[in-house]
Simulated scan of single mutants.
Amino acid sequence: MAIAVKICGLSTQAALAAAVRGGARFVGFVFFPPSPRCLDLDRAATLAAQVPDTVHRVGLVVDADDATLDALMERVPLDMLQLHGSETPARVAAIKARFGVPVIKSVAVATAADLARTAGYEAVADWLLFDAHPPAGADRPGGNARAFEWGLLNGIACQRPWFLAGGLEAGNVALAVRASGAKAVDVSSGVEDAPGRKSVAKIEAFLRTAMHLNVAAGAAAAAGR
């Protein structure tokens, strides 16, 4: 099966074009002020309007209230929302009902016990995203370029499709996919030259690797027939 790739935290036309050109199925825009990747609504609207219909436009928010989400969804043409804070299953369900778009819910993972938290979200989210816990003192959720033990996800009985995130880059994504069994991956800092500054070359390298995994998976499937 093809590995689906989400390039998150895009903020320039050049980076967005590289993601689309390279075959990303999802592109992410961040709306969380502490993040160096945060976009204002005008800039996000301009970029999102350039994304072809074949690619899903995802807006990442963290514990956003209804007024913030209303303004976002009114101004920016998004296909999905990614909830990357401490949103409860009830809040996820309420957001999905209010805006009528698919929702991705992030789950921080450090040990197998963390995976028990997915049960409540599987009933309401369309996708899950497994990421590392933030380091001590971090002002942003998510792995902040840190990975967790990918093997924890291997064979997970999850009723929803899911992304693997946290510490991924072109040099380790193949290993991460093999170890976790992921069918979709999310990358942000791993394709940057500095926080918030995407590298076209790194985006291209990451997607080339992902496309190679797609070809390898297809070849393996064909050989097994």
Rank of each mutant, 00 (worst) to 15 (best):
G137W: 06
G137I: 03
V103K: 14
H133I: 07
R91G: 05
N172L: 10
G151P: 02
G137P: 09
R117N: 12
R140D: 05
D139Q: 14
E122K: 12
L128M: 14
G137F: 10
L69I: 02
A132N: 11
W162D: 02
L69C: 06
E87P: 05
F130I: 05
N154I: 00
R140M: 15
G100R: 12
D131W: 00
L152R: 06
L129S: 04
K105L: 12
K96C: 06
A94T: 10
L175W: 11
A116G: 14
A174T: 05
G143W: 01
D70Q: 06
E87N: 08
A67M: 03
A94M: 11
L69F: 02
A116F: 15
R75V: 03
I104V: 14
L153D: 03
G142L: 11
V124L: 08
G166Q: 04
L164D: 01
A138H: 11
L72P: 00
Q82I: 08
L69R: 00
T118M: 15
V101T: 08
R140W: 08
G143S: 14
C158Q: 08
N144P: 09
L72C: 00
L129A: 06
K96R: 15
A123G: 04
G100D: 09
N144Q: 15
G143Q: 12
P89W: 03
P135K: 13
H133C: 11
A165K: 01
R91P: 03
T68S: 00
E74F: 06
A138C: 10
L175A: 14
A136Q: 15
